[in-house]
Design a protein around this nucleic acid. Structure first.
Length: 586
DNA sequence: GCCGTTTTCGGCCCGACTGTTTTCAGTCG
């Protein structure tokens, strides 16, 4: 995603925050938020569009006014309205909105009554007992704000999908044992397979809601109860995420699952669609007047508004409702579609297990091939392979392949891309391999132009087939490098090089937006485990989750090909390795 | 601020929980 688009979206969100504090028409506020969400995922750089004189006017939710403001922000970094709003209220006041329990009204009250302008100031005031004196606040509220802030300033936690799934599975076990619990499903962003989750939303069907809520509150893993009522509860798990529980009767399961899976934006769009048909959707069902006409299953809810079920990974209000209406929802790639993995490590490099063990693990999974891609020997990589090491490994692979008739190990390498885009192995060494994976492991700090140039050059190398984890991001640790992803994707397509979606739950790189861009531009994606041990293949489900969020179909993912198809692709001249025709989804 | 198979004006998704209030606003998901 081009960085300027993110900056424009941030400015629009800031306008919305400040208008909200000001007490502006809530629908006007929403218009700015919707515009921010519309700008974020655009493949095209809004700044470049503006400089070409192109406008976003006419896109959903963007009229003449917003299109003009977006262009102004994209080219100048700000706009007159934002400058005026900043003049009217403190710079850091929008920070207060991030404090749980503080919305626009209370943030404004604290600012005007006590001149509090930052979370740190609010925390100090709460500890001094000054907040309870403000009209609209009381001692319990003050305590809640203090606790929330103390936790937040200590470091806000999001959880990668592997960690989240451990907590999720534990909670499903706990809640399944609750009295009267029938179905227990993890919904929310976890079900949508977002790259990280901040909390777990769990739906339970049961006739007796309070009994299930009580059961959760008594669970040993619960560290703190944030809220609870007869049908819902919010708790924080010891060392883990917040859990939001919702209990509904069996007949409402489908409607509740839609509601609780979200996203919020998807739900709003869906309810608006229902409204246009004279229907009302809530978590209990679909209603025409007083009469309930659907809600037991998700399918019944979508059917009521004339749509097929939309896969959870697509429910982000990024065009899925329109696609569903026009019967062009993609048939999304599934875990079972994978036929191999193109990025596997062994103990000859930095892996933990032998070549034979990794091949056996892949075969057990039903794979037809793996490509071994241990790192090349760069200065920082003590376990890397040089030309001699690769030759020894190639011989071992040949011997192993001789024992298979239904499986093949490809001779590969994870070759380092140097600062200037050259590779750190010679062309003749690379030419002797079946498949070269190229990757960056350092100098993530290059500016956007140089980083892009570096990757474009590597992509253009005739031996390179896969660009591994293209942005180098590590969730919660390292931001993605500055990159013109659109250029990278187009270059990959033109060279017949495949872009990797590394399924490591801390990487998930490419992300969903980049996957969507690959599909739209006609570049192929390789979903790889980057396995360093046999069990690491389990993480492919997270990679497939991202791929599905990026609207990828089986044909968009190269390692869904059979061994014979893959071998043909590897042997083909560059343009043939690309997908035939780009598929525009937007 | 956007938008139109009810509308160019008057709508804009919906409900649970909390706390402060004295009948409901604010916040959240």
């Amino acid at each position: 995603m081009p960085v300027p688009n993110l900056l424009v979206a941030a400015a629009l969100d800031e306008i919305a925050d400040r208008l909200e504090i000001q007490g502006a028409n809530p629908f006007r506020v929403r218009a700015y938020r919707n515009a921010a969400r519309a700008v974020e995922p655009l493949a095209d750089d809004v700044k470049q569009l503006a400089e070409r004189g192109a406008t976003l006017e006419g896109r959903p939710g963007i009229g003449a006014d917003l299109a003009g403001k977006i262009a102004e922000i994209a080219t100048t970094g700000s706009c007159a309205l934002l400058r005026e709003l900043r003049r009217q209220m403190p710079a850091s006041i929008t920070e207060l909105l991030k404090v749980p329990g503080l919305g626009p009204k209370r943030a404004k009250a604290l600012w005007q009554a006590l001149d509090l302008r930052s979370p740190a100031q609010v925390l100090r005031a709460a500890r001094e007992g000054r907040i309870r004196a403000v009209r609209g606040f009381g001692e319990p509220t003050e305590r809640r704000i203090e606790n929330a802030l103390a936790a937040r300033l200590a470091g806000e936690r999001r959880f990668t999908l592997d960690v989240a799934s451990e907590f999720a599975e534990a909670m499903v076990r706990v809640l399944s044992a609750a009295p009267g619990a029938e179905r227990v499903v993890v919904a929310g962003s976890f079900r949508r397979m977002r790259e990280s989750v901040g909390d777990l939303d769990i739906l339970v069907t049961a006739a007796n809601g309070p009994a299930v809520v009580e059961h959760l509150l008594r669970t040993a893993d619960v560290d703190e109860t944030l809220a609870h009522g007869p049908t819902r509860a919010s708790v924080r798990l010891r060392g883990g995420p917040q859990v939001d529980l919702r209990v509904v009767p069996r007949a409402s399961f489908g409607a509740a699952l839609v509601y609780f899976t979200g996203s919020k934006a998807h739900n709003i769009a869906l309810r608006r669609l229902a409204q246009a048909r004279g229907l009302k959707i809530n978590e209990y069902g679909v209603f025409r007047g007083e009469r309930r006409i659907a809600g037991a299953t998700e399918a019944s809810v979508y059917r009521a508004v004339g749509l097929p079920v939309i896969p959870p990974e697509l429910r982000e209000d990024r065009g899925e409702l329109q696609a569903a209406r026009e019967h062009r929802l993609p048939a999304l790639v599934a875990l079972d579609d994978l036929r191999g993995d193109l990025h596997v490590h062994t103990d000859a490099g930095d892996g933990r297990e032998s070549l034979a063990a990794m091949a056996a693990a892949a075969r057990e999974r039903g794979f037809a091939y793996v490509a071994i891609a241990d790192p090349s020997r760069r200065p920082s990589m003590s376990h890397g392979l040089d030309a001699a090491g690769l030759a020894r490994q190639a011989a071992a692979i040949d011997d192993l392949n001789a024992t298979f008739d239904d499986f093949r190990v490809l001779r590969g390498v994870e070759c380092e891309i140097l600062d200037d885009g050259r590779l750190d192995l010679s062309d003749d060494v690379l030419a002797g391999l079946d498949l070269v994976v190229a990757a960056v492991h350092g100098r993530f700090d290059l500016d956007r132009a140089r980083q892009t140039e570096r990757l474009l050059r590597a992509l253009g190398h005739p031996a390179v087939r896969v660009l591994a984890h293209p942005t180098g991001r590590v969730l919660g640790e390292r931001v993605p490098c500055a990159l013109d992803m659109l250029q990278v994707v187009r270059k990959a397509r033109d060279c017949g090089t495949w872009l990797e979606l590394d399924a490591h739950p801390s990487r998930l790189d490419l992300d969903d937006t980049a996957c969507r861009m690959c599909r739209d531009e006609g570049a192929l994606v390789a979903v790889d485990a980057d396995a360093h041990g046999a069990r690491d293949f389990d993480r492919l489900r997270f990679g497939i989750g991202q791929a599905r969020r990026g609207w990828l179909r089986r044909e968009d993912v190269v390692n869904t090909r059979t061994l014979a198809q893959l071998e043909r692709l590897l042997a083909a001249p560059a343009p043939r390795r690309a997908r035939r025709a780009p598929a525009r989804t937007a």
